[in-house]
Simulated scan of single mutants.
Amino acid sequence: MISTISGGPTLAGTSNNSIKHYVRSTYAHQVFSAEQGRLPKTYKSGWAPITFCEEEERGVILPQDNLIIIRADISNLVGRILLDTGSSVSVMFAEAFNELQVPSHLLDRSITPLVSFSGEVVQPIRSIHLPISIGSAPQWRTITTPFLIIDCPTAYNVILGRPAMAQMKVFISTHMLLLKFPTPYGTGTVRGDQLGPRSYYASAVKSTNRQHRGEALAAEPVEDLELVTLDEDIQDRQVRIGTSLSQELRSDLVAFLRLNSEVFAWSYNDMPDILPEIISHRLSINPAVRPVRQKRRAYDPEQYEAIRAKVDKLTSIEFIKEVDYPTWLANVVMVRKGTKG
C-alpha cells in the first residue's frame, strides 16, 4: 500500500522551472494582497453552503478511525477506492486497470516517478485520463482526471488523490465517513464503507508483519511451465522449463538437461557422503543461556508413522545418527508439504 505519494502530473508541473514558478506565484500573490491591504479575490461559487450535522452520523459504528473507501464509476463500477488527501496524484493499480479493458491506445507514455512516504521511488507503468463519477443521480459529479498505473500488490483498486478531490470540490468528514460535493441539483453525498477498510487494513498489517518476521510468501512463476522427462525409463525424473522458449532453444535445453541428468539428486540416496567442508548445519547456541526443555507432545498414529518413516529413511543413508540424552529436549515439528512439486 502506498500511503502518501508525491510527484506525478500536478499543477506544479514536472520540471524544476515550473515548480519554482508555482511556488513564486503563490508567494507573490500573498505579498501583493498584503501590500494592498485586502484579501485575495474570491470567486462566487454558485452553490449552496455544505454542512454536516449530528444526525448524519447515524449508522456509523463509533468509535471508529477507518480509512474512507468508496465506490465510483470509472468506465465501470469500481469498488475499493481509497480517498487519500496525502497523495498528489490519483493511482490505479494494474490488476484493476486490466479488468476495465480500456483500449491500450489511450495510455500515455509520458510518466514521472512517484515518491512514497518512506522515500522509496515507485515507477509507474503508464498514465491515462479517465472519467470518474461519484454520487447518485441527479446529485452526482463527473470529472476527467489522470491516473498513474502502478503494478504492485495492494488491498485497493484505486487511490483517489488530492487534485481529483479538489476538482470535484469534495468536503470530507472522517468522523462520519462521509463526503459531500456541490452539484447543479443540490449537494451530493457518498458514504464510505466501514466493514471493508477494517478487513483491508487487517490484511495489509498481516502481510507486513509476515514480511518483517521473514516468512516466505508464496511466489508465482513469471510464465507457464511444462514438465520434461529426462529419462524415459524412469518417468518420475522430471524437471520444469518455461514455455516461452523458442523451439530451437527448447530442444537444446532439453538435450543439455538429459545429457547431464546425473547431476540431479532425485532422492536422499543420490547424496551420500557430503563433506562437511562443502556444507554443514549446526545450531549457534549461546552457552551462557539456560536451555528451555519443552513438554513432551503426543501425536496421533498417522503422525507417529510419518515420523518413524522419515527417521528410518535418514538413518539408513547416514544423514542422521541416534544419540541418547538423559532428559527430553524438544518435540518434532511436523510440516505438511504441498501437493505441487
Rank of each mutant, 00 (worst) to 15 (best):
G135M: 01
Y156N: 14
F147S: 10
A155G: 13
I159F: 06
D151N: 15
D151H: 14
P138E: 01
N157F: 14
P163N: 08
R141S: 15
I172H: 07
F181A: 01
K169M: 05
S133Q: 10
S133T: 14
Q139K: 15
R141E: 14
G161K: 02
T145Y: 10
L179S: 09
P184A: 05
G135V: 00
M168A: 01
G135N: 02
L179W: 07
S136V: 04
Q167P: 10
I143G: 05
A164Y: 03
S173G: 11
I149Y: 12
H175K: 08
I132V: 11
L130N: 13
T142E: 07
P131G: 05
C152A: 15
P184R: 00
T154S: 12
A164Q: 06
P146A: 07
A137H: 04
S173D: 15
I159D: 10
I143K: 00
A137P: 01
V170W: 01
R162G: 15
M168E: 00
D151K: 12
T183H: 03
K180S: 02
T142F: 04
T144Y: 11
L178Q: 10
T144C: 13
R141D: 12
L160V: 11
F171Y: 07
Y156A: 07
H175V: 10
H175R: 13
F181I: 00
P182Q: 06
I149K: 12
I143A: 09
F171P: 03
Q139T: 14
L160C: 12
A137W: 05
Q139G: 03
L130E: 14
A155M: 07
P184C: 01
G161A: 04
G161P: 04
N157D: 15
V170D: 05
F171S: 08
M176K: 13
V170G: 02
A155S: 14
F171N: 05
T154Q: 04
S173C: 13
I149S: 13
V158N: 12
V170F: 03
G135Y: 04
P131Q: 10
W140E: 06
M176H: 11
I172W: 08
C152M: 12
R162E: 15
P153L: 01
F171G: 03
P146Q: 12
D151L: 05
L130H: 11
I132M: 06
S136K: 00
I149A: 13
L179Y: 08
P184W: 00
C152Y: 04
T145E: 15
S136I: 07
S173W: 10
I172N: 07
I172M: 06
I143N: 08
I172Q: 10
K180L: 04
P146R: 14
S173F: 12
V158I: 15
L178P: 00
K180D: 01
L130K: 03
F181Y: 10
I134P: 05
I132S: 05
H175T: 08
T174Q: 08
A155N: 09
T154H: 05
